[in-house]
Simulated assay, not measured.
Amino acid sequence: MYHILIVDDEKKLRDGIAALYDWNNLGFQVDACLENGKLAIDYILHHPVDVVLCDIRMPVLDGIAFAKYIYDHKLPTKVVFLSGYSDFELAQKAIRYQVTDYILKPTTYMEIFTVFNKIRESLDRENQQADRPDTHNESTSPVIPYIKRYVSENIATVSLNRIALELNLTPNYLSKLFREQMNITFTEYLILEKMDYACKLLQNANFKVYEVALMCGYDNPKNFVKTFRQTIGCTPQEYRKGKMKC
């Protein structure tokens, strides 16, 4: 099952696309529905997403700028535009950013089926090619040690998509491989590593909690505190005071 993100500033439209089409039958799982390109970028940097179906005209960050970001950063996520007839010229310009396809509004199930059936077949081929190097050496694959080292060296900026790009693998395949060999999801592993690093940083009284949060990759200190408490069993302040230990 491949992962898809739906991005459109019209809530009824994005929710309708997610609910009305039989995505599972097409081989896709809708992970989230978001309202602009900036939110989509934030999402895919922390979650494995194979395809993004997005509108072109959106506030904050439009579809063209979003596709440019994916192209410039060489992220493996495929982009499909959902556009109105008046956006046709913009869709043509987006070819330079290697947008996979575009679907004109109003769309039909047959259009969705045709485009995403083709994309699924393409992703299947990519994963088959990625499987070949590890066919006889999966138990001793160097991929997992590489991931661990990469996480350790890039704790504040690491994401599954970034690692997948480094290894020339799809995020979905890499996520599956990691879980199979580690018995834990990549997200769960990353949180444990971040919290372990946070514990070490908190032992230095010179670092404020928000600074520790930033060094662990959390822009929002509240999210950091919440995750720390759920993982360690106390707040960063309580840990620092010695009420609990890692």
Rank of each mutant, 00 (worst) to 15 (best):
I44W: 00
I44A: 00
I44H: 00
H46Q: 14
H47M: 06
H47F: 12
V49D: 13
V49E: 12
V49C: 06
V49K: 01
V49A: 06
D50V: 02
D50S: 03
D50G: 08
V51H: 02
V52G: 09
V52H: 14
V52Y: 13
L53N: 00
C54V: 09
C54I: 12
C54H: 12
D55A: 13
I56C: 06
I56T: 08
R57K: 11
R57T: 05
M58C: 00
V60A: 08
L61K: 02
D62E: 05
A65P: 00
A65N: 02
F66M: 01
F66L: 14
A67W: 03
K68C: 10
K68A: 15
Y69M: 14
I70C: 07
I70V: 15
Y71K: 11
Y71V: 11
Y71H: 06
D72S: 03
K74W: 02
L75M: 15
P76E: 11
T77W: 05
T77P: 04
K78H: 12
V79S: 03
V79Y: 13
L82H: 07
L82N: 06
L82D: 11
S83E: 02
S83K: 05
S83N: 14
S86R: 06
D87E: 15
D87I: 02
F88W: 01
E89N: 14
E89Q: 06
L90G: 07
L90M: 11
L90F: 09
L90N: 13
Q92S: 08
Q92A: 03
A94S: 15
A94F: 00
A94H: 09
I95T: 10
I95D: 01
I95Y: 05
R96L: 09
R96V: 08
R96G: 07
R96Q: 05
Y97Q: 08
T100W: 11
D101N: 06
Y102V: 11
I103W: 05
I103G: 06
I103Q: 09
I103V: 14
L104A: 14
L104H: 05
K105D: 08
P106S: 07
P106Y: 01
T107L: 15
T107Y: 07
T107F: 10
T107M: 14
T108D: 12
Y109D: 04
M110Q: 09
E111L: 15
E111C: 08
I112S: 00
F113T: 01
T114S: 12
T114Y: 11
T114I: 04
F116L: 02
F116I: 04
N117G: 15
K118L: 10
K118H: 12
I119W: 07
I119Q: 06
I119C: 13
R120H: 08
R120K: 15
R120A: 15
R120S: 08
E121Q: 09
S122H: 15
R125E: 09
R125Y: 07
E126L: 14
N127H: 03
N127C: 04
N127L: 06
Q129V: 11
Q129D: 15
A130Y: 02
D131S: 04
D131T: 05
D131H: 03
D131G: 03
R132G: 01
R132V: 10
P133N: 04
D134T: 14
D134H: 11
D134F: 13
T135I: 15
H136C: 11
E138H: 12
E138D: 10
T140M: 05
T140G: 01
T140Y: 10
T140E: 06
P142D: 04
V143Q: 09
P145W: 02
Y146G: 02
Y146L: 04
Y146D: 01
I147L: 12
I147Q: 09
K148P: 00
R149L: 11
